[in-house]
Design a protein around this nucleic acid. Structure first.
Ligand SMILES: [Zn+2]
Ligand SMILES: [Zn+2]
Ligand SMILES: [Zn+2]
Ligand SMILES: [Zn+2]
Lengths: 155, 155
DNA sequence: TATCCAACTGATACGGAGTATCATAATGAT
DNA sequence: ATCATTATGATACTCCGTATCAGTTGGATA
């Protein structure tokens, strides 16, 4: 049986490191009028525990006590509030990962599944310009980068 | 209306303008060992008749006499042989369009659904470089650009 | 032209991913 | 403690795409 993460609010026992993340996200959601519920915390906690971009179904499997619809709703909310990013693999499988805020793109390793952020990249400006040259007003874009991370690189 | 260059192959009755396209694609497929079949021609013809990126289901609806599985298989083959591109909309809906060969990206208009190609863009080199800086070996990428085409631009 | 096999087709059924519904439960403001 | 609002979860559903498989067709060969 799983010993559930007990909610410690201000006493001596240290909580799992992800607890701070969960609290932070819950706080952000509260600010926007969303409630602090047990299933929602479980979803956030499970998402934070993943080491790789994960699928909604993986989260469902990791949370047998949370309804499937609730997991999907939770993820959708987290994406809407930009706490979680969507990641699209080459085979169009949709995965998620905790967001590091701000606009960025993902370097996705085909070998180990790792995801790294590519920020501070002027791709966006370049695209904007290239689009404008074609008389196109760019309002957004979707960019995923596939390959191999440093650890999995082929010599 | 656009008067297309009709390919006259030695007889008097002009065929629909798309016939040349169909013949060309069928020829390419034949070269690779794929057969020239009636349903396959119908799929290619219907694809060529679309003015906007289209969904597989739209093609099925346009081809009631062709089995659904055949339409899907036909599209898959056309994508594999690079006669057709996949286009991913912002809501992750998958659409297709005849390919203009070579690597390129799409400028997708949210207002009218039009798609224009963005070629001759050095985004790829920039990405490659940015990825390399992060120790990442880029092998591919997915990029779609959303916004408004010249006709639908907001002043 | 007849033969023959691999490729193709289409009806059907299946599976995965995500959402609509709706009765019930929990939250948090008062 | 009350109560309106929001959230939950079981279920059923839709949508997209694919596996299956018996029957058909294309086209190479003779
Ligand atoms: Zn981006
Ligand atoms: Zn890796
Ligand atoms: Zn591309
Ligand atoms: Zn437009």
């Amino acid at each position: 049986m799983i010993t559930a993460a007990v909610k410690h609010t201000g006493h001596r026992h240290p909580r799992p490191r992800s607890a701070a993340i969960v609290d932070d996200i819950i706080a952000q959601l509260s600010q926007q009028g969303y409630r602090d519920t047990e299933p929602r915390r479980l979803v956030i906690n499970a998402a934070a525990a993943q080491r790789r971009p994960f699928t909604a179904e993986e989260l469902c499997a990791a949370l047998p006590c949370v309804g499937r619809a609730t997991v999907y709703r939770g993820l959708r909310l987290l994406v809407e509030t930009e706490q979680v990013c969507r990641v699209l693999l080459e085979d169009r499988e949709l995965r998620y990962q905790l967001s590091h805020q701000g606009h960025h793109h993902h370097l996705l390793c085909a070998a180990c599944g790792a995801s790294a952020d590519l920020a501070n990249c002027d791709v966006d400006a370049l695209l904007q310009e290239a689009a404008a040259t074609a008389g196109f007003q760019m309002s957004g874009h979707w960019l995923e980068i596939y390959g191999r991370c440093a650890d999995c690189a082929v010599v």
